[in-house]
Structure formats: C-alpha cells, structure tokens
C-alpha cells in the first residue's frame, strides 16, 4: 500500500526534523529550569522556597497553548530592551525561540516536582556522611546527590519528555514549520485532511517509540549497580 503525499513527503520530513530540534532544545532548557526550581523548593531559605513554589504552580496552572502565544506576542518589549542593552536594536524572538522558551518553561515546572521528589528520596544519611568526610556542599551535591537523583528522576523525566514532544505541535499556531504545520500546509494545498493528519500522527508515534527506546537504554544505564546479578 502506498500513500500519495502529493509531493509533501520532503516537507513533512523537514517538519519532523524541526519537531526533534525543538523538543531537544526545549528539553535542555527545561532540565536546567527544573533543577533550579527543585533546588529552590528544597532550599532552607524561605524566599527561595516561595519562588520555586510560585514558578511551578503558576506555570502549571495555565495552558501550554496560552504560554506559547503569550511568550511569542508578549515578549516584544522585554526583547527590545534586551536588544538595546546588548547593542542589537532589531533583536526579535523567532517562532523557534518562543517555542523553546514556552515549552522549556512548562517542562521545567513539571520537572521541578520530579527533581524535588528525587532529592527528598535520597537518604539524609548520605549527605551527613559527605559532611562528615569533610566534603564541601557543592561537592556533595555534584558527587553524591546529583548522580543518585538522576536515577530516581529518570522515569518521571521520560514521561515529561513524551508530553513535551507532543506539545511541540502547539508551536504550529505561531507559524513554526514542524510536523503539524506542514500537515496543515499540505491540507490547504492538496486537501485529504484525514490522510495528512494520519500521516502526521504516525510520525509522532514513530518519534515516541524512538524516545521510549532511548529512555529504556538510559534507565538501564542509570540502574547499573542497583540490579541484583543472579
């Protein structure tokens, strides 16, 4: 069985590449934000705890679609001010950058909770042992807490990444040419909405399978030393 794509095959493939690029870039930003959010939320300093809590509550309470639209249209003045400050007065936020910011922000808010859970799951004794050994706090964090946190947080982060990958479809509304947008272009040009949206759906499924496979490998690697050998 062959499906006639009316010459939109390459466009859809380019869309898939854009989707992957967007998802991975937003993931990097989201991981950093999530880690910072979790550190703030578990901090012993009250204003920081409050800030971390406000970040994750505010961002998670508003639809992702609204964040995409708000950041794309709402960042104008802030970006212009920044542009003038660094000497590039014509600086604007591209659809890609807006998409990365919006999706990274949302991923980070959920990742804050995942990382926080992981930090709390690490026995207090480990940190105390580190202190007793005379390790500095940053060293305890990077050598003791972070590697263990990674293993505990990985499944949760994997789920969030699957959600992130599907949320990339929302960035089509600000004109970024990812899978969804390319499918819409194809429908405008060649009709057959069911065919093109189904092809797009299958492409997302393929990406999901790929991500699931990667997660499986990562989880296995992270669990080294925790699996009982028989």
């Amino acid at each position: 069985m062959t499906i006639d794509l009316y010459g939109f095959g390459p466009a859809l493939a380019a869309g898939a590449l854009m989707t992957v690029k967007l998802a991975l870039t937003a993931l990097c930003l989201g991981l950093v934000l999530g880690l910072l959010g979790a550190l703030a939320k578990t901090s012993s300093y009250k204003p920081l705890r409050w800030l971390g809590g406000a970040y994750s509550t505010l961002v998670r309470g508003v639809p992702e679609l609204l964040w995409v639209l708000l950041i794309y249209f709402g960042s104008v003045n802030a970006v212009r001010a920044l542009g003038e400050f660094i000497g590039m007065p014509d600086l604007t936020l591209s659809a890609f950058a807006a998409g990365v910011l919006a999706l990274g922000l949302c991923f980070g808010a959920y990742a804050t909770e995942v990382f926080r859970g992981a930090i709390l799951a690490i026995p207090k004794g480990h940190r105390e042992a580190g202190l007793a050994l005379g390790l500095s706090r940053p060293r305890i964090f990077s050598k003791l807490v972070l590697p263990q946190m990674w293993r505990i947080a990985l499944p949760g982060l994997g789920n969030l990444f699957m959600i992130l990958m599907k949320d990339t479809a929302l960035v089509s509304v600000i004109g970024l040419e990812e899978i969804m947008r390319q499918a819409q272009n194809a429908v405008t040009f060649a009709k057959h909405p069911f065919t093109f949206y189904m092809v797009a759906a299958v492409m997302y499924l393929g990406l999901t399978v790929l991500a699931m496979g990667t997660m499986h490998v990562l989880e296995k690697r992270a669990a080294r030393g925790f699996v009982r050998r028989t």
Binding site: Y72, F73, S75, V76, R80, D90, T92, V173, I174, G175
Partner: peptide
C-alpha cells in the same frame, strides 16, 4: 515570513 491569520497584526507590532 508566514504567520497565522489571528496573529498577523500582533506579530507586525511585535516586529
């Protein structure tokens, strides 16, 4: 530069 119809004027003002 293509834009959604909804956002075509806001995006102009957003430079």
């Amino acid at each position: 530069v293509t834009s959604d119809w909804d956002g075509i004027i806001p995006a102009l003002n957003a430079k």
